[in-house]
Design a protein around this nucleic acid. Sequence first.
DNA 1: AAAAAGAGCAACCAGGGGGTTGCTCATAAA
DNA 2: TTTATGAGCAACCCCCTGGTTGCTCTTTTT
Lengths: 116, 116
Amino acid sequence: MPQKSAAPGRLYDNAAVFAALGDATRLRLVARLCENGPQSIVRLTEGGEVSRQAVTKHLRALEHAGLVRSGRSGRERLWEVRTQRLAEARRCLDQISEQWDHALERLRSLVEADSR
Amino acid sequence: MPQKSAAPGRLYDNAAVFAALGDATRLRLVARLCENGPQSIVRLTEGGEVSRQAVTKHLRALEHAGLVRSGRSGRERLWEVRTQRLAEARRCLDQISEQWDHALERLRSLVEADSR
DNA sequence: AAAAAGAGCAACCAGGGGGTTGCTCATAAA
DNA sequence: TTTATGAGCAACCCCCTGGTTGCTCTTTTT
């Protein structure tokens, strides 16, 4: 069994990741970073609806959740996606769905035993 | 450019789903609903850290995001998970990761062409 | 050396979200 | 028919979040 002590505490962490993705602007930022690779703040601001400062704040939020990271290059700072956390989030959803499937199975076997 | 009009609007919808999952209490509720099947509010409140009203509010939030639904049974209301939205959320994450992979490929071929 | 571009910082504001308490309503159990 | 259980509604509170504006700092560019 993978991920033995997937520890209830882990769930909390994933909540933070989902919260970070739970904003349209941030989700768009992540998508853009994935589509076009590492970019500067100004570039990420272009075409968007919010100010540069807002974008900065969102990037910091994403960084806090471990979804992006940045590094300075000359006078600009480049941001890139950290795919690991994304993968973890996916696994979390997978696990939940899996539990649901198990529950369904259990339920079905109960019904069968009942009508037998 | 791939993914022509994958409708930016879709992204927004997923943000709502992630936002719903982006709270530890709600995420736990979803997990419990998946583990133990449809349950009433009082049952979902047991063992938790918050009041029944809080649970109710969270359930409504999840309902708004399309993640759960409910039906009355006698004097109690049973809540169950709607797996469809969960699946959609997963697909959203998959798409994003996929775009990232494509970007990596593009980048790699660029580098190769450059050093050739 | 002067001008412009990219970022960072701080203060401020409005709104929403999570939580609670108190009361009422309806249905099932005694 | 009482009584107790499960749930709904409404008001209220606090604080966090998303967004803005204004200023400063550093690094290019001209």
